[in-house]
């Protein structure tokens, strides 16, 4: 029972980590929490769904959905966030304008999706079995799809870890978030680098949507709760740290899974809120957060 609960926790934690990673990537590049992330991710998932239905192949739809997610993330930055940050520099809502604007974008994306595909729950099947692996007579609640989710999250972490640590692009991304002005002077094209951060985030969100949806259903709001979990995970991890996002996601996933098993399913988000509050009150910048987010 304990092992089963742990496995469920790891699998859902991996998904939370992906969502948390996509939030951290945007935060690191623009110092904005992108509340539209679940809208962007679900949009990409709908695109993946449409391709999967037409091409009858999940494995074609997955990379295309990720590419679409990256494009969408980049477009949101170009067409939406940049004009916003240029225009709204002072006034009573300057500080909260990004929050409000991304919330508006979230609503816009979700109602557009509803207009196109309707609000009914759609099934987006994956060729991987959703049945748990069997060891002897015991079937664990961990299916090939779950394994794929965990592997995909690990792969994303490894790829981003590599990019941030060992490539010029990664150095530019870190410089642009650490000291934008000085990075600009040193020849980093900050706004372009930031745009790449948004694209990475969009792709990660799209991946999260595309791997989780086969285990659930697809609707314009189907990733909202994932967003809230991902956000809690990202904040627990410190919003600035990729590793923190993954650790936060796993802690939250495993925590939720044990609460679901041993207490009650419906209080999970309340417990999430309490965990979040405790972490923030002890360490206001999260467990892995630093005042100056310099490290990868």
């Amino acid at each position: 029972m304990f092992i089963d609960t742990l496995l469920i926790g790891i699998s859902s934690g991996a998904i939370y980590s992906l969502m948390a990673l996509s939030l951290v990537l945007v935060w690191r590049s623009t110092r904005i929490v992108n509340f539209a992330q679940s809208g962007q991710a679900v949009f990409s998932t709908y695109i993946g769904y449409e391709i999967a239905v037409r091409a009858h192949d999940y494995w074609i739809s997955l990379p295309l959905a990720i590419i679409f997610g990256a494009l969408l993330g980049s477009l949101v930055d170009l067409l939406f966030m940049r004009p916003l940050l240029r225009r709204v520099k002072d006034g009573p809502i300057a500080e909260i304008a990004p929050v409000i604007a991304t919330l508006g974008l979230l609503g816009l994306l979700q109602s557009l999706l509803g207009l196109i595909w309707g609000n009914a729950f759609l099934q987006y099947a994956s060729p991987l079995s959703a049945k748990g692996f069997t060891f002897g007579s015991h079937t664990v609640p961990f299916s090939p799809q779950n394994l794929f989710i965990v592997l995909a999250s690990c792969a994303v972490l490894v790829i981003f870890g590599f990019i941030f640590k060992y490539t010029n692009l990664g150095l530019a991304l870190r410089a642009a978030s650490f000291q934008p002005e000085i990075a600009q002077l040193a020849g980093v094209r900050v706004s372009r680098v930031r745009n790449i951060g948004w694209a990475f985030a969009g792709a990660t969100g799209a991946l999260a949507g595309a791997v989780i949806t086969p285990t659930a259903t697809l609707s314009p709001n189907s990733l909202d709760l994932l967003f809230v979990s991902g956000f809690i995970a990202a904040v627990i991890g410190g919003l600035d740290s990729l590793v923190g996002a993954v650790v936060g996601g796993l802690v939250l996933g495993i925590g939720f899974s044990f609460i679901l098993q041993y207490i009650a399913g419906s209080v999970t988000f309340l417990v999430g809120f309490i965990i979040l509050m405790v972490v923030l009150l002890i360490r206001p910048r999260g467990i892995f957060g630093r005042d100056a987010g310099r490290h990868a």
Binding site: W27, I32, V33, F35, E95, I96, V99, L225, V228, F231, I232, V235, L239, V267, T268, F269, L270, V271, G272, F273, L276, M277, L280, P284
Partner: peptide
């Protein structure tokens, strides 16, 4: 800022 926004968001879902 975002920390407060996120905490209150979690409260809105949880409470």
């Amino acid at each position: 800022g975002p920390y407060l926004a996120g905490s209150t968001l979690a409260l809105a879902v949880g409470l």
